[in-house]
Nucleic acid binder design. Structure first.
Lengths: 190, 190
DNA sequence: TATTAATTATACCAATCGGTATATAGTTAT
DNA sequence: ATAACTATATACCGATTGGTATAATTAATA
């Protein structure tokens, strides 16, 4: 692993543990075993480092999500694939998932929010698109596509939030996904 | 408004705008029109100031939520009251709601997370209790009370998140709550 | 081998960080 | 009147902040 990668990894871990603003550049380079000019050579600034972290995480994420969320006529299976893919991505790299999540809810004027916002918008668009494409089968949704998308993502991410807070075991993403999608589609009387 | 209150208000606004770690003590007292020793006189530390903000926000919040979430034999109406109360609280003080939310997802080792965690646990307990109390009517939930609670909170808070991101208008909490509860209970085919 | 370009380190910058020692008003109780 | 207490300001602390000018080192190229 070269120095650039090492910096990305160490910074990600520290950001996850303490938060972007609570981590100093000095701390990052110390953990990575080098000095500050190296970091500034590769990333220009602390914010540039953050952007690189987010890009290398979200670009593959979004590609996978787009594939999974492609509507092919069957709503349950589309939602299931979408849900499962998000669960898998989160469980493959819990630290990065949680860090990205924290940025999503960071203060509006904070750099971190500006950095992560475009990715969040794209995720939202992908999910909304599912319900748009499925509108033929779901019937008139009265413009509730956004509400459905928010609800769908809410159920998934709140499940993950609680999951990371507690057990972190027996992770059959397939089974969990089935469960969550069922809850989302048919409610609690199932 | 005395100096103590003024400090609480200015700090809350700044924390909401920039985030706890990105705001300096100097900045807070300047906005409040006083000097640092005054802040340290009332709150002992920056962290103590945060604790005071959270306590004065969450204690009434939790009391209201507890009342609303009291199960009296009717699941839909209990969920509706609970949902509506959370919407009302969020809309009464959007900045504080969003700031509290950001803390909820802040880094695990960050002071802010430690400060807000007990309140989040209590909110979760209140909501889980609904589904425990309702288990007689809902039948065997196979220990899915927590999943239901997470899903319920996820739908509400994700709705709010999107709401604060966009329109922020025509807020009939009663109607929205009916909608969200219906989606939660009966899914999307309604 | 000489030269150029890509990396990395030493040593520094002004500014800000959270926090405090001390002094000074204003108020209250004796 | 004076002692004690509450509340606020001046001026400072060492440590750390993000960032950089400069030089040395390494690797690739001519």
């Amino acid at each position: 692993m070269d120095n650039r990668e090492k910096l990305l990894e160490c910074a990600t871990n520290l950001f996850y543990e303490k938060g972007y603003d609570a981590v100093g550049v000095q701390e990052i380079v110390e953990k990575a075993g080098m000095t500050k000019p190296t970091l500034y050579y590769y990333f220009k600034s602390k914010y540039g480092l953050l952007e690189s972290i987010l890009e290398s995480y979200f670009e593959p994420y979004l590609k996978r999500l787009e594939v999974a969320a492609e509507y092919r006529g069957d709503i349950p299976s589309t939602l299931h694939r979408t849900c499962r893919e998000q669960l898998k991505i989160a469980l493959e790299n819990p630290k990065m998932y949680m860090f990205a999540f924290s940025l999503m809810y960071s203060a509006r004027e904070n750099d971190t929010y500006q950095a992560v916002r475009p990715y969040m918008v794209r995720i939202n668009e992908i999910v909304v698109k599912i319900f748009n494409d499925a509108s033929e089968k779901l019937g008139n949704m009265n413009g509730r596509q956004q509400q459905f998308a928010s609800g769908f993502e809410g159920i998934i991410n709140y499940y993950l939030m609680y999951y990371f807070e507690t057990d972190c075991q027996d992770t059959d993403t397939d089974e969990i996904s089935m469960n969550l999608v069922k809850q989302f589609m048919y409610g609690i009387y199932t």
